[in-house]
Simulated assay, not measured.
Amino acid sequence: MATTKWSVDPAHSEVQFKVKHLMITTVTGYFQKFNVEVETEDDDFTKASKVLFTADVDSINTNNEQRDTHLKSEDFFDAANHEQVRFEGKGFDKVSDDEYKLNGDLTIRGTTKPVTVNVEFGGIVVDPYGQTKAGFTVTGKINRKDYGLTWSAVTEAGSVVVSDEIKLNAEIQLVKQA
């Protein structure tokens, strides 16, 4: 069996998170700079020997500069001391023909915890330029406080400003490396 290396196609991939604000609306943020490296046995992603995702904290974008600066501060990600978010996959569990659970370790702000995300496999195709590509939709949830992102505030009426639950969403297209 041959080892196949895959890397992210950033032009056709995105990584976002969603969090409730004031418990009445959802704010969406993106990591604009991220990397994904995968090594598989041939083209079998269930036998991946390496799944590594990293995102640069300084690339957070919520379409609000003041909020982005706050997220990069010590109150949240502490970008000055913790430059990256990191996920290292430990194994795939097949749920159905195109649905999997990916288990791994997520590190945020120097704290590493096991996490499981849902992965929908979109398939493998050869694009018009002869490149072999694989597509995935990744979803999951984490509790931000598990990773030391504990800043909180309460409105005068007693509403929580930022929820603890963070929804994770990623559309990932990988390119097979020669």
Rank of each mutant, 00 (worst) to 15 (best):
P128W: 05
A134P: 04
T112F: 01
T132S: 10
K101P: 04
L149G: 02
Q131C: 13
K141S: 12
V160L: 15
Q131D: 14
E74D: 04
V160A: 15
D68S: 09
T116V: 07
T155L: 07
R109K: 12
E120F: 04
N143S: 13
N81H: 07
N118L: 06
G104S: 03
D78I: 05
V138H: 00
I108L: 05
L71M: 03
L106G: 03
E88S: 04
D75R: 12
G158L: 04
N81G: 05
T139F: 01
E74V: 14
N118M: 06
P128L: 07
T155D: 07
G122L: 08
L106F: 00
V126N: 13
T150S: 15
N118F: 01
V126A: 14
Y100P: 06
F92W: 01
V154D: 08
K90A: 02
K94E: 01
F77G: 13
H82P: 12
R109Y: 01
Q131N: 15
K101D: 05
V125I: 15
F121R: 12
D75Q: 09
R144C: 06
E74K: 13
E74P: 14
A153C: 08
T137E: 09
K113E: 12
D75N: 10
R144H: 00
A153G: 15
I124A: 11
D93G: 15
G158H: 05
K90E: 00
P114F: 01
G89L: 06
E156S: 15
E120R: 11
T137P: 13
A80C: 08
F92L: 02
N143W: 01
N103T: 12
S152L: 08
V125L: 13
Y129N: 14
F76Q: 08
H82C: 07
Q131F: 10
V95E: 02
W151L: 10
Y100H: 03
S73V: 03
T69I: 13
T107S: 03
A153D: 05
Y100R: 09
R86M: 12
Q84F: 00
V119K: 11
S152Q: 12
G130D: 02
V117A: 08
D93C: 13
Y147G: 07
V117L: 12
N103K: 14
Y147F: 04
D105I: 07
G110E: 02
D75M: 11
L149N: 01
I142C: 05
D97G: 10
Y129F: 14
V125K: 15
V125S: 14
D146L: 10
K101F: 02
D78C: 06
G110I: 04
V125Q: 13
T155G: 12
I108R: 08
Y129Q: 13
S96M: 01
T139I: 02
T139Y: 00
F77V: 11
K72G: 05
W151T: 11
V115E: 00
D127T: 09
A134G: 08
V138K: 03
T112G: 08
E156F: 09
K101N: 10
E83R: 15
E74S: 13
V154N: 14
D127H: 07
E83I: 08
D93M: 14
N81K: 15
G122C: 08
F92Y: 01
T155R: 04
K101C: 05
L102Q: 03
V95S: 06
A157R: 14
E99G: 09
G158Y: 00
V85I: 11
K101A: 10
K113C: 12
E88R: 02
T155E: 04
